[in-house]
Amino acid sequence: MADDLDRLFERLVSVLADDAPGRLAVPFPAAEVYERLVPYRSNRSTLKVATHQDYEMAVLRLLAGERGYASLEPAEVREALEREAAEKNPDTALFRQFPDALLSLNRLAAERFLRRDRAYAPPPPPPPSPPLSPESPEAAAGEDEDNDAQAGRERAPLAGAAFELAEQSESPRQCPYCGETLPGSRKVNFCPQCGQPPSGDLRCPVCGGEVDVGWRYCVSCGRATGFE
């Protein structure tokens, strides 16, 4: 749960980011925190501090480097404020003695607070599109597309049935050279009986030269064709 220190740092980061995002990386005098950037009077309700002393204690803790939110230079000033913040009854206004000490913010911590701010304020959703009237051209076009799609679904089974009938009515193929039946369940490049292609010229089984039906020998290589 956030306390006074968290709220002070968050407010400081927000003010600097609104002023100029690059300022988060630039050291500045510590006095700017309580005099100009996050003064008590104008930020009391935002910081939810009950008294001015509570506000000063939050500033003291910030300048002392608590939680790593910021770093103060010179180091001896930061160490003095750190010791004072740890006291049982600290002098909460001790930091006012070092107005020129330079304060550097933790960029990672600052960006974490900024991202959380954006998460709490998401962009509004786009307005819904108005419904199309039945007379509009867009509605008519959509209706035509629906009708075409429905007609396509109705025609699809008929085409499939015709294709199945064509396959069932197809008779077994025969080799044009030897007359043997060719296998019908696979692609046939050559007859399993005579070795010739089911379509095309008759070829010599040895050299592949063109031969004619009834030739016992190839005219190209002189080897026996095996055809009677």
Results as ranks from 00 to 15, higher is better:
residue 68 G to Q: 08
residue 165 L to R: 15
residue 116 R to Q: 15
residue 225 T to W: 04
residue 63 L to G: 07
residue 127 P to E: 15
residue 28 F to P: 05
residue 31 A to Y: 01
residue 163 F to S: 14
residue 10 E to S: 12
residue 206 V to K: 10
residue 131 P to I: 02
residue 38 V to C: 11
residue 46 T to H: 02
residue 25 A to I: 01
residue 17 A to L: 12
residue 206 V to Y: 11
residue 5 L to H: 06
residue 227 F to N: 15
residue 12 L to A: 09
residue 37 L to A: 15
residue 176 P to Q: 13
residue 182 L to Y: 09
residue 89 N to W: 06
residue 80 A to Y: 01
residue 173 R to P: 04
residue 14 S to P: 08
residue 131 P to M: 11
residue 212 D to P: 00
residue 103 L to S: 09
residue 177 Y to H: 15
residue 71 S to Y: 02
residue 148 D to P: 02
residue 60 L to A: 00
residue 82 E to R: 00
residue 106 N to I: 07
residue 65 G to H: 02
residue 3 D to L: 05
residue 103 L to I: 11
residue 105 L to R: 09
residue 202 L to G: 08
residue 142 G to R: 14
residue 92 T to H: 08
residue 54 D to I: 03
residue 134 P to N: 09
residue 89 N to A: 12
residue 178 C to W: 11
residue 160 G to V: 03
residue 72 L to V: 10
residue 130 P to R: 15
residue 9 F to D: 00
residue 157 P to F: 08
residue 59 V to C: 10
residue 5 L to Y: 03
residue 103 L to D: 07
residue 71 S to M: 05
residue 40 Y to A: 07
residue 30 A to M: 04
residue 28 F to E: 12
residue 186 R to V: 14
residue 47 L to S: 01
residue 70 A to H: 09
residue 207 C to V: 10
residue 174 Q to E: 12
residue 110 A to F: 01
residue 93 A to E: 07
residue 25 A to V: 02
residue 2 A to K: 14
residue 56 E to N: 13
residue 78 R to P: 01
residue 125 P to H: 02
residue 156 A to C: 02
residue 183 P to W: 04
residue 184 G to K: 03
residue 137 P to N: 06
residue 214 G to Q: 10
residue 184 G to V: 05
residue 183 P to R: 01
residue 84 E to S: 01
residue 212 D to S: 06
residue 61 R to I: 03
residue 174 Q to H: 13
residue 161 A to V: 14
residue 182 L to Q: 11
residue 10 E to T: 09
residue 2 A to G: 05
residue 137 P to M: 02
residue 17 A to F: 12
residue 172 P to A: 09
residue 185 S to Q: 14
residue 112 R to I: 12
residue 144 D to N: 01
residue 79 E to T: 03
residue 68 G to P: 03
residue 77 V to I: 14
residue 213 V to I: 12
residue 36 R to S: 14
residue 75 A to V: 05
residue 30 A to S: 15
residue 87 E to D: 11
residue 92 T to C: 13
residue 29 P to K: 11
residue 205 P to I: 13
residue 23 R to D: 15
residue 104 S to G: 06
residue 27 P to W: 09
residue 228 E to S: 11
residue 159 A to Q: 13
residue 204 C to S: 12
residue 5 L to Q: 06
residue 189 N to R: 07
residue 176 P to S: 13
residue 60 L to W: 00
residue 11 R to N: 04
residue 146 D to T: 05
residue 223 R to V: 03
residue 33 V to W: 01
residue 171 S to K: 11
residue 152 G to P: 00
residue 2 A to E: 15
residue 166 A to H: 07
residue 17 A to G: 00
residue 174 Q to S: 08
residue 74 P to S: 13
residue 96 R to M: 06
residue 107 R to T: 00
residue 29 P to W: 02
residue 38 V to D: 06
residue 138 E to G: 04
residue 14 S to H: 13
residue 156 A to Y: 10
residue 71 S to T: 12
